[in-house]
Design a protein around this nucleic acid. Structure first.
Lengths: 204, 204
DNA sequence: GTCTATATGCCGATAGAC
DNA sequence: GTCTATCGGCATATAGAC
């Protein structure tokens, strides 16, 4: 019988999210996704033109929830911006302790699709990371941090670098080290405008 | 006819390196590797127990050449340690302009194998990154940088974070931003011992 | 140590009924 | 909009000859 197409599509994307994030893109077949979504493969191909199309939809659906989670983390921490960013990294460290945590879905997709430079899913990942960076840049600008665009890029690099190393070593302490680096960079970009305060707040 | 087994094995690993690094692990079949190596699939399975075994051998073979390339880069740059590290990131930016560059083979393998936490290739990647970190730590320690272990972790995070973002956005400038961050962190960890010099060399 | 030939199964995608 | 059934291809891995 005919059902609500939008609801079916949503269930397919939810099943794809669990499987693609949990096991990778190439490792998961459309059969498994259809089965998990409770539909047949033919129905999946009614809603999505191809597996590549579904991969893009999977990342699109992750964009706002992922960004929102970090925004909630930052919003729940008290203190100056450097402290709050450092706390955000601490929250990442705690989250990464869960064995179900498998790093950044966007970065992992880009890694797996590196052999196909024109793949639409890579463009989705690029847009997500740029939106994340723009959010950080705005936070830095409002806090009168010097060169906010540069520092925002550096924070993004620290974030994804920490995620990569936690995934490789299964050691969340890399997020703590990255958080300390982030705080140092932010403080340096603030104190630079006054050419260094005398009381050594830089690494305090 | 019988040939030199070690030479055959080497040719298989070389073929695997080109294909695994260029197209990914799951995307490449053993058929393609055997064909590129100029042997049959049966011979490949004489030298390697499984595809997973070959994947581990592929990463093992990348360890020393990868570390050596960065060591050569650092050795070819004049100046203080912060400058030389920053120059190393600049060399990464230049290298990443080549379309054949596809990021870090170790990080990409760990990303693709995230669904199989016990995979031996992940352990190979972990050992490689730890060896890289130990090299950086020794450089920092010899330069009297405070907390060399922490700073070495931060430099590793910056390095792999930069590589991730270059791969996602195809924009080598993330390596330049990461290099500037690395120099700032090193200088901060040196000036900390004197609790900040007055002439603002921190972000110079 | 290397070969030809093959076992066995899953892959993405489609035909056509209702 | 969802179904059953299936196509053609490619996957990893192996049997047995030389």
């Amino acid at each position: 019988m005919k059902r609500d197409g939008a609801a079916t599509r949503r269930r397919i994307v939810e099943a794809a999210d669990v499987l693609f994030y949990g096991e990778g893109l190439k490792s998961v077949g459309v059969d498994a996704i259809a089965e998990k979504a409770g539909i047949t493969k033919r129905t999946l191909y009614y809603h999505f033109a191809s597996k590549d199309d579904l991969i893009s939809a999977y990342l699109e659906a992750r964009h706002l929830p992922t960004l929102g989670r970090y925004q909630e983390w930052l919003g729940s921490i008290e203190g100056g911006l450097a402290q709050r960013i450092e706390g955000m990294f601490a929250r990442l460290a705690k989250t990464a302790e869960n064995p179900k945590w498998k790093g950044c879905g966007f970065a992992r997709a880009a890694a797996e699709l590196a052999g196909l430079p024109g793949h639409p899913a890579i463009a989705v990942a690029s847009r997500h990371k740029h939106a994340f960076e723009a959010w950080l840049c705005e936070l830095l600008r409002r806090d009168d941090v010097q060169k906010p665009k540069l520092v925002a890029q550096q924070l993004m690099v620290l974030l994804d670098g920490a995620i990569t190393h936690i995934l490789i070593h299964r050691d969340p302490r890399y997020a703590v080290a990255a958080g300390a680096a982030a705080a140092t960079l932010i403080k340096a970009a603030k104190s630079h405008s006054q050419c260094l305060k005398p009381n050594c707040e830089l690494t305090a």
